[in-house]
Amino acid sequence: MEIDSLILMGFIRALIERQFMQFALITGILVGLLAPVIGSFVVIKRLSLIADTLSHFSLAGLSIGLFLLNILRLPIGDPLYVGMTFAVIGALLIEALRSYYKNYKEISMPIVISLGTALSALFISLAGGFNTEIYNYLFGSILTVGRNFVFIMAVTTFVILLLIAIFYKRIVIISFDERYARLLGIRVGVFQFFSTIILGLVVSLSIETVGVLLVGSLMIIPVAAAMKIGNSFKTTLLIAILFSEVSVILGLWLSYSFGFPSGATIVLFNILILLMVIIIKKIFSSPHAEEKVAMEAEVRTE
């Protein structure tokens, strides 16, 4: 107990005294907010694998960035920008393939994942093989983010949340019922184009927090847990954000205190919450609960 409180005190002191911890916390909270918000719309549209696909494609950009920077010595700045560009290109590629294979839309995902992974392997090798930077891209390195990244993250979060607030009604109706949105005269294609770009940006920025291999879970798992509890769209969204933030803060704490990889601890907390939700739901709902709900609904019809 005493050790636990010492560890917690150490974490809080680090948050107060160490700038890198403050950057990590701010980044974590921003990603913890943005990822489940975007993730909700992704889940509704049954595109849960899109985040993983884009993160793999973004990795191709990051490794090409490393190759340009380290081997060709080109002054491209942070490979992150190449990664972001690739995430957006990957997103547009998915959209193009989805409209090409209209009846087999999911085919687009493995094609883009394969291309991304192949390019990554090629350029990682050309850039001098596996190193710490690559490891950080794969598994995340929230404790090493700098002032510049925190600024980009803050601006991106603000702009995206503002856009969602302005176009809230249209985004929700497009997600739930695309055909009806078209009938209402909403320009679905334009919205889809911009949301695809936004998705690409959020995925590539989230890579710094949990890494390529775990970005999808950050977007999807809190939403998967929240949709089993929420009764309305708004409460589900709020619960998903709450789960996500709790996971980020607890994950950051364990990661700092025991030197665990931050991405892994954050995602494992998300999974833990999901498991708890599933178990608690099982305990509190009797086997006939669903039939009961259906019967009550019938009674209301009478």
Binding site: V43, I44, R46, V172, D177, E178, Y180, S232, F233
Partner: peptide, 28 residues
């Protein structure tokens, strides 16, 4: 033009949304 589709299967059902919320996002 108001439209009630066949079987309503274009709608994504399993994600929570209330009747009121559907009306809110459909009203322009």
């Amino acid at each position: 033009i108001g439209y009630v589709p066949q079987k309503l299967d274009d709608f994504n059902y399993e994600f929570p949304i209330t009747v009121n919320e559907i009306m809110h996002v459909s009203r322009y």
